[in-house]
Design a protein around this nucleic acid. Structure first.
Lengths: 120, 120
DNA sequence: TTGACGTATTCCCATATCGGCATACGATGC
DNA sequence: GCATCGTATGCCGATATGGGAATACGTCAA
């Protein structure tokens, strides 16, 4: 056994910078492979391969149009990432600064309580 | 040349499920390596290695405490991920449905303008 | 039908990655 | 000093990954 859980999920798909770029372009609307090749300055096989990965995690969809294949964004697939990272929002968001301060105070209070609770 | 840009950035660090688990635990407060080993059911070298990766991208910090090493979350490092994925929020959030419709209308309008702007 | 175009796939190379095991290393307690 | 604990690192094997080049495949035009 070796190298477990490289599970082709959205997190992995998005870990590659060029794939993020592809998604960013597709956010602007459908594109053919050639269009992506030109806009991103990548080779055609490169783009096709990245699109394959994105398709496997359902982050993009395809539509046939003559000899072209038009790819479109399917942002739903990114929601799990959003949901996960949003759980950390409070650690940096100013909106929660006050709340954090209060929590810290409570923690300190709790510590003091523990240190003194068994004293005469 | 081969395999470019697997750049040890936050996106990559977080692409590994077990590393996300570690961060999730650390979100609850400082932990020693052993504590993480027990809470997650991983081997000690596994945990140490994952922590190394997380430390390299500055997603966690360490503090020495006797022969223990206490790791803590540094959520700031996850902000780039949040910022990036937040750009896609509008694709699934109902709150933006109306706005999307308006934008689409504007795009169509623009297309019409372009198609006719050089006509007599 | 033939040829060009648009795209996907295959093969190969170099390297990165993960797990397991063993081991090294620093701090502590006896 | 010596054994032990807590942790980090090194090495290995298996596999995945990304790039490049070549090629296969399907569609359309002449």
């Amino acid at each position: 056994m070796a190298r477990a859980a490289t599970t082709a999920d959205a997190f992995n798909a998005v870990a590659e910078p060029q794939r993020r770029q592809i998604l960013d372009v597709l956010a602007g609307g459908e594109r053919s492979v050639t269009a992506l090749v030109e806009e991103l300055g990548l080779t055609q096989p490169q783009v096709s391969k990245h699109l394959r990965v994105l398709r496997d995690v359902d982050a993009v969809g395809v539509r046939e149009d003559g000899r072209h294949r038009l790819y479109r964004l399917n942002a739903e697939a990114l929601k799990p990432i959003h949901d996960w990272v949003r759980g950390y929002e409070r650690f940096w968001s100013e909106r929660f600064d006050r709340l954090d301060a209060v929590i810290e105070d409570l923690k300190r209070q709790e510590h003091r309580d523990k240190r003194t609770e068994n004293r005469p």
